[in-house]
Write a protein that binds this DNA or RNA. Structure first.
Lengths: 199, 199
DNA sequence: TGGTTTGCCGACCATTCTGGTCGGTCACCG
DNA sequence: CGGTGACCGACCAGAATGGTCGGCAAACCA
């Protein structure tokens, strides 16, 4: 206690740093970049986190905390449109508060392999698909698309001070992308695939 | 002429380079990075494009060509669901062939300000909204979300050799995100959202 | 009041990375 | 055989990198 201010500052730093790490990866994000992003000098930033690696570790830890919170809040809702809706809504809410950290969380899934610098495990997928191996391809595509939209939109909203104004639209967009829009308890019969192009 | 091979190689280089430039920006993408991505030595790459700036210029030029092609193919279809469908379809098709270049094209719109290194004009928005100033916010959010999904999904598909298998799903996802969902001339109006309860 | 702590900075340093050059090798072509 | 073009390793000068150090001003505490 007695140090709420310090903590607040640090959290701001962490989120901005996370945004940079998410887009550029650890190696391509310099301490100077982060310092600029948070409005400190390099030395000033290194006063909060003595080392780039320490900073990164703190960022990852914070992101993991966030992920755990989401997973926790989701409980063990059975898979289905209702779970999808709740999941998207809580994820958007979390992301609107910490867009950078969520972007970092989603980065490995989103840019799956664009360059092999995946910062964190690909657990996020599991929120929407139980087993990425057996899930129908369409579901995978849609989850990925929804994540992409979620990450980009929350970041944009945050950075333009539109978080409250855009919330419902972001949720709607992600939900539609996910495809769980239509009637509750739909007959989830995935159309038979014309092309069994599997690996 | 007589150099179709050279051209083919160069195009491969351009697309991969574009992908890197899109994610990291010009400054944070080294010649070595591009060389690695295309499987050449730095000197070998600089044999194709004598300078980093020349390479970048070539990339941008190619991207612009692509953009022009899309705009052209779209003609002057009146705004509306039909135009949306056609636009998404042609964009996806182009993007499946050149995911990196399209990502670069979309980059300024997508990471609008994450870091102010916008490589190309934000023209792409105009494909779906006539005037970003007067357009309803929901439309903007949805277009942005659709773009994000488009860029990420085509990149992923290309990089996993699923371009043909995923095409229809990508189109569907983007279309749903856009909100102009239903099949040709469907009456299925965007169903009104029930009160989004808080979590 | 004065002493101490805290948050932050400019200047600096050794090391790495950068864009780019140069000379050379190898395959192909006439 | 002598080009020619694609490609590479080694190299270079300058820039960027992570990190240190001494200092300064404001807040805190006595």
């Amino acid at each position: 206690m007695a140090r709420p201010f310090r903590q607040q500052v640090d959290e701001g730093i962490l989120d901005r740093a996370a945004a940079l790490f998410a887009r550029r990866g650890f190696a391509k994000t310099s301490v100077q970049d982060v310092a600029d992003a948070v409005g400190l000098s390099k030395a000033g930033l290194l006063h909060h986190f003595p080392t780039k690696d320490v900073l990164y570790a703190a960022v990852v830890a914070q992101a993991d905390t966030l992920a755990a919170r989401v997973l926790d809040q989701l409980g063990d809702l059975p898979a289905g449109p209702e779970r999808d809706r709740r999941a998207v809504e809580t994820m958007v809410d979390v992301a609107l508060g910490h867009p950078g950290l969520v972007a970092l969380l989603l980065a490995p899934a989103i840019q799956s392999g664009v360059d092999p610098a995946a910062p964190i495990a690909d657990g996020p997928l599991r929120v929407f698909v139980e087993d990425p191996e057996t899930a129908p391809p369409e579901r995978l595509v849609r989850v990925l698309g929804a994540y992409a939209a979620l990450a980009v939109l929350t970041l944009a909203a945050h950075q333009q001070d539109r978080t409250t104004a855009w919330r419902r639209h972001i949720v709607a967009t992600c939900l539609d992308a996910l495809g769980s829009a239509e009637p509750t308890t739909a007959t989830v019969a995935p159309r038979p695939h014309p092309e069994p192009n599997e690996a």
